[in-house]
């Protein structure tokens, strides 16, 4: 994968309304890196992933990412699993970037989708409606779609939530395979032991970046305490942020 597959944040601020979700973050996800994004609930982790994927506008600052080369695994809860669609049809949407809205899928592409289902352990599930799957099986289907997307940059939003340990282990093996293939991977995670064992780099986020670097240096007791403090303060009397260009021009 090329040098272009890195992600650079320059004094980036993301907001919900006027409240900052991610406040003045700068840094670089190197091409081919495997990074865990951790932090308390409401720390802005999902918002950051969505912004990198182009789903959330940057309020201020810069965000450089290869938009055409990104695959995003959404939180499974964000999808309507009662939707009448088969596993294979979901996986085949992974071809969208190449096939677009109109072109019929080639036999090779259909075969790739079937193989992806097999690779996540769901052989024989092609025609099953997603509504009949367990949470773990549904997550496997979404990973199969990622396989088909074959993107150089992969963003995973809580990929192992609510799945059993065997499914998590299988999916983690896929993540390592992608890492070995040189893809850039960002994963929002809550299981710190897993992060320590499996993820070389970590971004600890609590609306503001607390620490970012090699996992062992980031996940110290002091940093984690700092993250907890920052996320819990939610100031009803918050002033406009002086560091933002928007406030300077308004003043």
């Amino acid at each position: 994968m090329s040098q272009a597959d890195g992600i650079t944040l320059t004094d980036l601020t993301l907001t919900h309304g006027r409240r900052p979700a991610v406040h003045h973050i700068s840094g670089h996800f190197a091409p081919g890196s495997l990074t865990a994004i951790v932090g308390p609930n409401g720390a802005g982790k999902s918002t950051l992933l969505r912004a990198i994927a182009g789903l959330h506008p940057a309020r201020e600052g810069g965000l450089r990412a290869p938009r055409h080369a990104i695959a995003l695994l959404p939180q499974a809860a964000a999808l309507d699993r009662a939707f009448p669609i088969s596993c294979l049809d979901v996986v085949m949407f992974g071809h969208w970037a190449r096939a677009g809205a109109f072109r019929a899928l080639r036999p090779a592409e259909k075969r790739a989708a079937r193989e992806a289902l097999g690779a996540v352990g769901l052989e024989g599930f092609e025609g099953r409606p997603v509504g009949s799957l367990s949470t773990g099986q549904f997550q496997r289907v979404l990973f199969a779609r990622l396989l088909v997307q074959d993107a150089p940059v992969i963003l995973l939003d809580e990929p192992f939530n609510a799945v059993d340990s065997r499914t998590a282990a299988d999916l983690l093996a896929l993540v390592h395979r992608w890492h070995g293939e040189g893809r850039t991977i960002l994963a929002v995670l809550h299981d710190l032991d897993l992060v320590r064992q499996q993820f070389p780099r970590t971004l600890l986020l609590a609306r503001e970046p607390v620490a970012w670097g090699p996992t062992a240096e980031v996940l110290t007791a002091a940093n984690r305490l700092k993250a907890r403090m920052m996320a819990e303060e939610w100031d009803a009397e918050a002033e406009p942020c002086a560091a933002g260009p928007g406030t300077r021009s308004a003043a």
Partner: peptide, 11 residues
Amino acid sequence: FDPGFAAAARA
């Protein structure tokens, strides 16, 4: 089914 995917895929 998945408006987020559609948006990310610039569909």
